[in-house]
Amino acid sequence: MAAGGDHGSPDSYRSPLASRYASPEMCFVFSDRYKFRTWRQLWLWLAEAEQTLGLPITDEQIQEMKSNLENIDFKMAAEEEKRLRHDVMAHVHTFGHCCPKAAGIIHLGATSCYVGDNTDLIILRNALDLLLPKLARVISRLADFAKERASLPTLGFTHFQPAQLTTVGKRCCLWIQDLCMDLQNLKRVRDDLRFRGVKGTTGTQASFLQLFEGDDHKVEQLDKMVTEKAGFKRAFIITGQTYTRKVDIEVLSVLASLGASVHKICTDIRLLANLKEMEEPFEKQQIGSSAMPYKRNPMRSERCCSLARHLMTLVMDPLQTASVQWFERTLDDSANRRICLAEAFLTADTILNTLQNISEGLVVYPKVIERRIRQELPFMATENIIMAMVKAGGSRQDCHEKIRVLSQQAASVVKQEGGDNDLIERIQVDAYFSPIHSQLDHLLDPSSFTGRASQQVQRFLEEEVYPLLKPYESVMKVKAELCL
């Protein structure tokens, strides 16, 4: 049975990233139509530049190519590739079939990587351009969430054990800070992308030097003109047959890092959902379990974690691919890159769409948070109580021993009897502590235990987050809708 299948058929496997999760716009960027249309555009740009620099290419040939950029006979191309065992030459023939007058000058002087690699770089750039505003929107939604809850005390956790208090907004800023680093890295790697350009079979530009009869300047002009037509500021000066596969490492490393950030955020949300302090959106008709109707599973956060793990592992592909590119190139890269580049971007696209949807509907339960604080705060307040007693004339050592005994009794009630923490009640009825009984409410005010959390939130948002989001103001209103 021949390899390949009808990918629109229910009898043929289709990647869930495309069929179930990723956005239509990201799927289109990695589609065959987008790819092969870009090949034709690159052939047109090459012909236009070659004509401008004096090669015998007519206006009629150029116009014929322009008129057929979208006229792609995919069936013919597939048949040609089956016959020739070469995808680029299959599309040269297919393009030439609908451009008979231009057929002889299509791909003039070029090698397969002229269309293959340059198209990949265009796709990487455009895919990054799709991700950047999506990530900015996630940051914006979380920034709104953090600002609104900047002063809401909550129990902090280290080692997932109760620690000092923080605020809900401050905790959210930990998430935002990681995503801001990801946004900066995505922008950097996007701006650092260079075009492969017009380089020939081993990167020496020998074929173009021959076409222009040894004119170095025209060869350099050709490279520059096509690079500018493709919208790049610069091209690699040095290439082998391909652009260095280190570029793929750079791009997928940034995406993998984004995956790590999203995994951490969504894990926190899942843990908070278990504590009943916070939940992701839950639709009115949504079913959490087929057997347990009360369940409210954090399905979206779980999906993000599941896909983020996949995204983090994909960076190993370009690392290994770059390491086995012998001399000017081997074909070890080809099949692998067809999979890992598309999957990385479709996965990143999915987790950003999902995280935006989550961040637009996060639900906080202040009463649950308050109750958990009441359970733990008495123990945390013991040092403040000791200091207040010393100020009232008591002995630190005597007070410490009193607190120690009462704390152990209260802990026994919590752990052995399943009761509430009654340390404060014990202190309130103990005559030894009568000098500070009137101060206990103040000493137990949760806001006095959150330090500068709310001020940190305000400063972080104003100095770091809002300036970073400013270039994306025009796209901030787009909502994230999930079908599944």
Results as ranks from 00 to 15, higher is better:
residue 90 A to Q: 02
residue 208 F to Q: 05
residue 249 I to K: 04
residue 255 L to A: 08
residue 81 E to L: 02
residue 421 N to Q: 06
residue 469 L to P: 01
residue 201 T to D: 03
residue 426 R to I: 04
residue 126 N to H: 14
residue 362 L to I: 10
residue 26 M to K: 00
residue 478 V to A: 14
residue 119 T to L: 10
residue 269 I to Q: 04
residue 77 A to V: 12
residue 98 C to W: 09
residue 390 V to A: 09
residue 279 E to C: 08
residue 310 H to M: 08
residue 135 L to Y: 08
residue 229 K to M: 07
residue 157 F to R: 06
residue 407 S to E: 02
residue 69 L to W: 09
residue 312 M to D: 02
residue 349 D to T: 10
residue 436 I to S: 04
residue 98 C to P: 07
residue 144 D to K: 15
residue 420 D to R: 03
residue 131 L to R: 00
residue 306 S to C: 03
residue 340 C to Y: 15
residue 474 S to R: 15
residue 338 R to F: 00
residue 23 S to P: 04
residue 404 R to H: 06
residue 142 L to G: 02
residue 6 D to P: 06
residue 111 T to P: 03
residue 244 T to C: 12
residue 77 A to H: 15
residue 317 D to C: 08
residue 349 D to F: 05
residue 173 C to L: 04
residue 371 R to Q: 04
residue 231 G to D: 11
residue 10 P to F: 13
residue 398 D to I: 07
residue 426 R to V: 04
residue 363 V to Y: 06
residue 109 G to D: 01
residue 372 R to W: 04
residue 87 D to T: 00
residue 397 Q to Y: 03
residue 134 K to N: 14
residue 93 H to I: 06
residue 277 E to N: 02
residue 356 Q to R: 07
residue 153 P to N: 04
residue 386 I to V: 13
residue 84 L to M: 07
residue 177 Q to P: 02
residue 24 P to M: 11
residue 187 K to L: 07
residue 258 L to H: 11
residue 427 I to F: 13
residue 287 I to P: 01
residue 277 E to M: 07
residue 376 E to G: 02
residue 203 G to Y: 00
residue 212 F to C: 10
residue 15 S to H: 12
residue 473 E to P: 15
residue 186 L to I: 11
residue 330 T to C: 15
residue 316 M to E: 05
residue 139 I to K: 03
residue 97 H to R: 09
residue 134 K to T: 14
residue 257 S to R: 05
residue 149 R to K: 12
residue 3 A to G: 09
residue 81 E to F: 00
residue 344 A to S: 09
residue 25 E to W: 10
residue 73 D to L: 06
residue 230 A to I: 10
residue 414 V to C: 05
residue 126 N to Y: 11
residue 328 E to D: 05
residue 288 G to F: 04
residue 208 F to L: 14
residue 88 V to M: 12
residue 417 E to F: 09
residue 102 A to N: 10
residue 273 A to D: 09
residue 431 A to E: 13
residue 150 A to C: 15
residue 201 T to Y: 00
residue 291 A to L: 03
residue 56 P to M: 08
residue 389 M to G: 10
residue 339 I to C: 13
residue 351 I to R: 01
residue 274 N to F: 12
residue 302 E to I: 00
residue 407 S to H: 02
residue 404 R to M: 09
residue 236 F to V: 06
residue 291 A to I: 03
residue 105 I to N: 12
residue 436 I to P: 04
residue 42 L to G: 00
residue 370 E to L: 11
residue 391 K to V: 07
residue 284 K to D: 12
residue 458 Q to G: 13
residue 463 E to R: 12
residue 451 G to N: 01
residue 432 Y to W: 09
residue 132 L to Y: 12
residue 164 Q to R: 01
residue 268 D to K: 01
residue 105 I to V: 13
residue 460 F to G: 02
residue 396 R to E: 02
residue 260 A to R: 03
residue 429 V to K: 08
residue 458 Q to M: 14
residue 473 E to S: 15
residue 39 W to T: 10
residue 88 V to K: 01
residue 183 L to I: 11
residue 427 I to N: 02
residue 479 K to Y: 10
residue 335 A to R: 02
residue 108 L to W: 14
residue 340 C to M: 08
residue 456 Q to W: 00
residue 94 T to K: 09
residue 185 N to F: 07
residue 171 R to E: 01
residue 69 L to R: 06
residue 262 V to A: 15
residue 437 H to A: 11
residue 55 L to F: 03
residue 420 D to F: 06
residue 88 V to N: 06
residue 448 S to A: 14
residue 151 S to G: 11
residue 6 D to F: 07
residue 286 Q to K: 03
residue 112 S to A: 04
residue 111 T to F: 03
residue 131 L to H: 10
residue 243 Y to R: 03
residue 396 R to C: 04
residue 157 F to L: 06
residue 370 E to C: 07
residue 225 M to K: 14
residue 44 L to I: 07
residue 130 L to T: 11
residue 85 R to Q: 05
residue 450 T to D: 02
residue 437 H to Y: 08
residue 170 K to G: 03
residue 60 E to L: 11
residue 403 I to K: 03
residue 16 P to A: 08
residue 324 V to W: 10
residue 267 T to S: 11
residue 92 V to G: 07
residue 39 W to M: 15
residue 236 F to I: 08
residue 410 A to V: 05
residue 326 W to N: 05
residue 470 K to P: 06
residue 111 T to C: 01
residue 309 R to G: 03
residue 73 D to F: 10
residue 421 N to W: 00
residue 316 M to P: 04
residue 410 A to F: 04
residue 411 A to T: 11
residue 81 E to C: 00
residue 322 A to K: 04
residue 472 Y to G: 09
residue 415 K to F: 04
residue 417 E to H: 09
residue 52 T to M: 08
residue 452 R to C: 15
residue 114 Y to F: 09
residue 420 D to Y: 04
residue 408 Q to L: 09
residue 101 K to G: 11
residue 126 N to K: 12
residue 440 L to Y: 02
residue 455 Q to F: 15
residue 136 A to D: 05
residue 331 L to W: 02
residue 21 Y to S: 00
residue 313 T to I: 08
residue 245 R to E: 01
residue 240 G to R: 00
residue 287 I to T: 13
residue 98 C to T: 10
residue 105 I to M: 09
residue 150 A to R: 11
residue 423 L to W: 04
residue 397 Q to M: 09
residue 22 A to V: 11
residue 278 M to A: 06
residue 350 T to D: 14
residue 6 D to Q: 03
residue 127 A to R: 01
residue 85 R to P: 00
residue 189 V to G: 13
residue 324 V to Y: 06
residue 207 S to P: 09
residue 165 L to Q: 03
residue 353 N to E: 14
residue 95 F to N: 10
residue 428 Q to H: 13
residue 348 A to L: 08
residue 282 F to E: 06
residue 144 D to G: 14
residue 316 M to T: 14
residue 353 N to Y: 05
residue 331 L to I: 09
